[in-house]
């Protein structure tokens, strides 16, 4: 028996909007720790890892570890039917091939339930080792989204370079080139507007902008994004989910010519 009650149902709506275009089908894993997902895109270039900790739910009942295969497009369709202020409860019985989403309006005058078919998904689970990153950039998520969108109108790839001077995003395409430098800036009034760079050594990596733009669909989940870079590892693009956990996107770099 599984029963998860999330008062801030909009978080789950935003999570699905953030990942549904990257991954078609995925297993949601439910354990005492929380509600989690790990999935790769169909090309095995990017990986998404989601964790919503059990403490973040108003009510969290998970009698035994459960893996539920869902089509994310269909799940997003159902969650779109929940209001932004609705409380969302997920329910599943042991051995059932369906999951039920219950939506309650804040005033309890409208209660809906949507039952969705589960599916068998043969997915690989990858071990993600703890890593020391050469550079960690923390910046406003809206700024990162703007940069990825702007650069993708010029080129297909972005070179992210971190030095003591700041973080540089560069692209080139048929019409020309673009470079955007964000300097460390931690003197702003609001912490969510700061750009903070921690660097042990300079790093420069090339990534496909198509994936970066897809990751920025998680922007509504957090005002801050963290980019963790090492010269021989996938970049980690992390959006923290307040009080609950995170959504992390891993993207394999392109090989430098």
């Amino acid at each position: 028996m599984l029963e998860l009650r999330l008062v801030q149902g909009s978080l789950l709506k935003k999570v699905l909007e953030a990942i549904k275009d990257l991954v078609n089908d995925a297993n949601f894993d439910c354990s005492a720790t929380g509600f989690s997902l790990q999935a790769m895109d169909s090309s095995h270039v990017a990986l998404v890892a989601l964790l919503l900790r059990s403490e973040g739910f108003e009510h969290y009942r998970c009698d035994r570890n459960l893996s539920m295969g869902m089509n994310l497009g269909n799940m997003a369709k159902m969650l779109k039917c929940a209001g932004n202020d609705d409380i969302i409860t997920l329910k599943a019985d042991d051995g059932s091939d369906t999951v039920t989403f219950m939506f309650e309006s804040p005033t309890q005058d409208k209660i809906s339930d949507f039952e969705m078919k589960l599916m068998d998904i043969d997915s690989e689970h990858l071990g993600i080792p703890e890593a020391e990153y050469h550079a960690i950039v923390r910046m406003p998520s809206s700024e990162f989204g703007r940069i990825c969108k702007d650069l993708s109108s010029i080129g297909d790839t972005v070179v992210i370079s971190v030095t003591k001077e700041g973080v540089k995003f560069s692209t080139r395409g048929d019409i020309g080139t673009a470079n955007i430098v964000c300097r460390q800036n931690n003197t702003v009034d609001k912490p969510e507007e700061a750009t903070i760079i921690e660097m042990t050594e300079p790093v420069s990596l090339t990534f496909a902008l198509r994936y970066m733009n897809s990751f920025t669909k998680a922007t509504p989940l957090s005002s801050i994004v963290t980019l963790s870079l090492s010269s021989d590892l996938p970049v980690v693009v992390e959006y923290k989910i307040a009080e609950m956990g995170y959504i992390r996107f891993y993207l394999a770099p392109k090989i430098e010519e």
């Binding site: 095995h44 689970h125 990858l126 071990g127 090339t206 996938p234 394999a252 392109k254 090989i255």
Partner: peptide, 14 residues
Amino acid sequence: VNPQRQITSFFSKT
């Protein structure tokens, strides 16, 4: 065009 690496070349199956 820079060739694209795959995630599976960095992280192994558990």
